[in-house]
Amino acid sequence: METQAAEAARRWLADEGVRQVRDGWVSDAAPEVLLTAGDVAHSRAGDVFAEDLDPADQLRLAFGLLDLLDAYWVTCEIRFANESSEGPLPADVLWDGYRRRLEADGEVEAVTYSLWVDWFEDQATSATAFAEVLGNDIGRIVAEPSDALLRRARLVLECSGPVRWTVKEPAYRTALRLPALHPALFRGLRASFHDVYGDLEPAAALALLDRLDLPADTRHLAGLRHVLAAGHRNHHRSPGAWDAAVRSCS
C-alpha cells in the first residue's frame, strides 16, 4: 500500500506534468519519452524545495517522493537543501523521516546508502546522524525491542563502518546486550575494518567481537579476529593484511 507521503508526492508530480505509466514515467512535455524513477528524481526532486511551503512540509514532500521513487538522488537533494543558504532543514522532521523509513517493511537501500556514504562518511555530520538514527535510542531498543526498532538498529549497525569509533562504541556495547543484534553488530565491525573510511580501535573491537554469540563458522569471523588481534585498524591502511589473515585461517 502506498504511504500517504507517497500519495502526496504522486499528486505533486501530476501537478508538475509527470505521471506514472506501466513501464516507467512520462511527462506532459514529452509524452513519447519513457523516464525511469531516477530520471524523475534527478529532474524534479530539487524542485520540491522551491515550493511555496514551509521547510517542514517541503521536507515531508521530499520524503514522499523518496517513498514513491525509491531513488537515492532524492536523499541527495534533501542534503543539498539542508546545507544550502536557506538551511538547515528542521532536524526533528529530517531525522524522524529517516527513522520511519528504516523501521518500515520493504526496500530501503536508498536510505541506508544515503546514511553510509553521505551522513556517516562526512565527519561534520557523522556523530549527529548516528545519534539520531540509533545512538540516542539504542538503550530503549535493547530494553523494549520491537520488529520495527530491531529492523532500524540492524540496518544502522550494518552501515555504520565510517562512524568514528568513539561515537559508535557506546551504542555497539549496548547492542551487545541483545543477541538478536549480534549478527548486525558483527557486520558493523566488519565494515568498520573494510570500509575505505571505516574506523575502529583494534583491541576494543576485538573485545566486542569475542563476546558475540555467532556460529563458529560465520564467514569472515576468523579473518576479522585475526587482523584485529594483529592490531590492524583498516583494510586500506594495511594492504595485504586481510588476505594474509584469510590464508592463515583457511
Rank of each mutant, 00 (worst) to 15 (best):
L13C: 07
L13F: 01
E16I: 09
V18G: 04
Q20N: 01
G24P: 05
G24C: 00
V26I: 15
S27G: 14
S27Q: 12
V33M: 12
V33T: 15
L34V: 07
L35R: 13
L35P: 02
T36I: 07
A37C: 01
A37R: 10
D39H: 10
D39V: 06
V40W: 10
V40I: 12
V40L: 11
A41R: 07
H42D: 15
H42A: 14
F49E: 03
A50I: 04
D52P: 08
D52V: 13
L53Y: 07
D54I: 11
A62V: 09
G64K: 05
G64M: 06
L65T: 00
L65P: 00
D67W: 08
L68S: 02
L68T: 00
L69Y: 05
V74I: 07
C76G: 13
E77C: 12
I78E: 03
R79Y: 09
F80V: 12
A81W: 01
A81E: 06
N82Y: 02
N82C: 07
N82A: 08
P88V: 00
P88Y: 00
P90R: 12
D92I: 09
D92N: 09
V93D: 02
V93T: 11
W95E: 03
D96M: 11
G97I: 08
R99M: 05
R100M: 12
L102E: 06
E103W: 06
A104V: 00
D105I: 09
G106W: 02
E109H: 15
E109I: 15
E109R: 15
T112Y: 03
Y113V: 14
L115I: 10
L115T: 08
L115F: 05
V117D: 11
D118A: 12
Q123N: 13
T125E: 09
S126L: 01
T128E: 15
A129F: 00
L134H: 04
D137V: 08
S146K: 00
S146P: 01
D147T: 14
D147I: 14
L149C: 09
L150Y: 04
R151G: 04
R152G: 02
R152Y: 04
R154S: 14
L155W: 09
L155V: 07
V156Q: 04
E158K: 13
E158I: 10
C159N: 11
C159S: 11
C159H: 13
S160L: 04
